[in-house]
Nucleic acid binder design. Structure first.
Length: 625
RNA sequence: CGGGGAGUGGCUCAGCCUGGUAGAGCACCUGGUUCGGGACCAGGGGGUCGGAGGUUCGAAUCCUCUCUCCCCGACCA
């Protein structure tokens, strides 16, 4: 039992002005955390208790499938050089030097460290599979920490790594994590959805994110539920697709071949549609980018990436970057539009471009040196080299929504002119055709056709089939049954521990709303609240009440409850407000009706208050658990 | 990194435009009265106004530089 009068729970009457999102205000006001710097927080006793409960749940579920480690947070440069991520991680990695001048970094993830252990110790297929996890501090120099504990530079992560003999083994490890994660988040009282996620530049084959819908989130996800409320489809916006409805094609004009038409001042899609009396889906939208990958010594290498999609669709840059085999995209400047498309914005189109063949994407990811360096390229046929030497050669990506269409209208790469009768495949070619558009709310999901719901969400976990990237590059090998050398296949899995707490608060706050003073209000699930029940003595100076409070607290503790006894010499009002503020789900109020043999039991999760006979309190609360 | 905002006692803020002895509420300490939804009275402690430089007889206030924090964007296995 803990007595509030002896504890350090510095609640605030007013929220600090810096805090905007609900969980940030609440954590500050309730005395859970204090800020030390941007994205750096001290966890006070309440937060520590809650986070300890969360990690205990994580630990018991993870111990069912794996073994716990504790790895260093301080890493020598060399191990990151081996995987190629010393440069690959860029600015997000905290770096420092030791007294000898050797480079070190603070761990933002631990693939390299775990793989180095596996490399040194795993020799035989008999030692596989392995699932290794840890709960540890991660450091990431985020460009913009924000929203309290939601996006920080130092946080706690449960990260695990699986090593398997083959893909079937990886599937199993992955599925075990999927089940463990669902158990963990359920036990933590969260309503979550598992969504298909973008595997990114990591080259993994499958990836799922566990998301909690909340306005404070930074990711967008699309999901659909059936009538029973079951999630039938869910995906990150970077991955989500939808079924396209039928469209009415325009009738061809003239000989049916592309026809140049004068469209003065009709650069915007809405304008050209009105001008020609057609729908936006009859138009081809062009978005021109420069694709980027990191070059040597922190430089950036660029190539033109030109995307075409339906006039009523929006480009998704993550999908596009994946399709174009580059890391990042920036929009072209006017002089670049002139160079690669020879037209001005508003009148750009696919006809007449120099299109890089798809094979080129496999050579240096489609990024080529200029001038003399070209002749040193290996494995490039003469035909391909001719394309590459054309400085205008661009990676052209066409959205799947345009394939098999006909008689479309597109910019003619000439000011105030468009083409009509443009038919993809006949009148222009592309490097790749891919899904590069954003889905929009209400479109039918690709599985069952139910309307998609779009919403913001916080990512609380991520499971990811890594493949051979780290085991290969870092030289981890084992001998299989036949004595043949093999590379273990890996998976990587993460849970943001603090995000479980913050998203639980956000989720509850969204339901509970604000209190009578206009402040964010919430209740924590019993499993992760810093205390499960608070015994509030309304008048501590009344010896009978104080004594009864002690007894209730002791009895509840004996019954297995995590009890906080509010024995402070404050008014009842202050105690009620504070009890609400720290988010404890159950309260036993020992007050004026004690003389009649009753106390009050408040279930804040259900929002109910009951007068309960003194002898029944422990049983009654026991039934609630 | 681009755009916007803010730094004055522990917290929320006023004062700045128009330079002239640093304020309020809450919190804190002491005493008393209260005691079921953030009580009241009396007394008291606490701030070189983010930092540096400048203008001035005089700077929280005007000027220059700088640091930090927040928000939007960019960015983000």
């Amino acid at each position: 039992m803990h007595r509030w009068s002896k504890l350090f729970i510095p609640t605030l009457r007013e929220a600090p002005a810096d805090a905007e999102v609900a969980s940030h205000q609440i954590l500050l006001r309730a005395g859970y955390i204090r800020q030390l710097g941007a994205g750096i927080y001290s966890y006070l006793p309440l937060a520590t208790r809650s986070l300890n409960k969360i990690t205990a749940i994580v630990r018991t579920e993870m111990d069912r499938i794996g073994q716990e480690f504790f790895l260093p947070a301080l890493h020598p440069r060399e191990v990151w050089e081996e995987s190629g991520r010393w440069t690959g991680m860029g600015e997000n990695m905290f770096r420092l030097k030791d007294r000898k001048g050797a480079d070190l970094c603070l761990g933002m993830t631990h693939e390299e460290i775990m793989t180095s252990i596996a490399r040194n110790e795993i020799r035989s297929y008999k030692q596989l599979p392995q699932i290794w996890y840890q709960i540890q501090t991660k450091f990431r120099d985020e460009p913009r920490p924000k929203s309290g504990l939601l996006r920080v530079r130092q946080f706690t992560m449960k990260d695990s790594y699986s090593f398997d003999i083959d893909e079937a083994g990886l599937d199993e490890s992955y599925n075990k994590h999927d089940a463990a994660y669902r158990a963990i988040f359920t036990r933590c009282g969260l309503e979550f959805v598992a969504v298909d996620a973008d595997s990114g530049a990591m080259g993994g084959s499958q990836s799922q994110e566990f998301m909690v819908y909340t306005e404070a989130g930074e990711d967008w996800i699309a999901s659909a539920r059936d009538d029973a409320g079951n999630v039938v489809y869910a995906a990150n916006i970077e991955k989500a697709t939808s079924t396209l409805g039928p469209v009415t094609e325009l009738e061809p004009t003239g000989d049916g071949m592309p026809e140049l038409i004068y469209t003065p001042g009709k650069g915007a899609i809405a304008d050209i549609c009105e001008f020609l009396g057609m729908q936006p889906y009859n138009d081809i939208k062009c978005v021109a980018y420069m694709g980027q990958i990191p070059g040597p010594d922190g430089t950036v290498v660029e190539k033109p990436v030109i995307a075409f999609l339906r006039g009523d669709h929006q480009v998704n840059e993550t999908k596009l970057a994946g399709a174009a085999n580059c890391n990042e995209l920036r929009t072209m400047q006017p002089e670049e539009l002139q160079k690669y498309l020879s037209g001005p914005a508003g009148f750009l189109g696919p006809v007449g471009l120099t299109v890089l063949p798809v094979e080129a994407l496999n050579v240096n990811r489609g990024f080529f040196p200029k001038g003399a360096g070209l002749d040193k390229l290996k494995g490039v046929s003469g035909e391909l080299l001719a394309f590459i030497k054309d400085e205008r050669a661009s990676t052209v990506v066409v959205d799947l929504g345009l394939v098999n269409r006909k008689n479309l209208v597109a910019g003619a790469n000439k000011l105030d002119y468009h083409f009509r009768n443009v038919t993809p495949g006949r009148d222009f070619q592309w490097t790749v055709a891919a899904d590069i558009r954003n889905v929009t709310a209400g479109e039918p999901d690709p599985v069952t056709g139910l309307p998609l719901r779009l919403g913001k969400a916080v990512e609380i976990g991520h499971i990811f089939k890594l493949g051979y990237k780290y085991s290969q590059s870092m030289g981890s090998r084992f001998l299989d049954k036949n004595g043949k050398e093999q590379t273990p296949i890996m998976g990587s899995y993460g849970i943001g521990v603090e995000r479980i707490l913050t998203s639980a608060i956000e989720q509850s706050s969204a339901k509970v709303g604000k209190n009578d003073r206009g402040e964010f209000s919430y209740v924590l699930p019993r499993t992760i609240a810093p205390y499960e029940v608070v015994v509030t003595v309304t008048k501590q100076s009344d010896a009978a009440l104080a004594e009864a409070g002690e007894k209730f607290a002791a009895d509840l503790e004996a019954a297995g409850w995590d009890v906080l006894l509010d024995d402070r010499n404050d008014s009842a009002g202050v105690k009620f407000k504070d009890a609400d503020l720290i988010g404890v789900p159950y309260r036993v109020t020992v007050g004026k009706r004690l003389v009649e043999g009753f106390v009050e039991v408040v279930d804040r999760l259900k929002g109910t208050t009951e007068e309960v006979a003194v002898a029944e309190v422990v049983n009654m609360l026991g039934a609630l658990r």
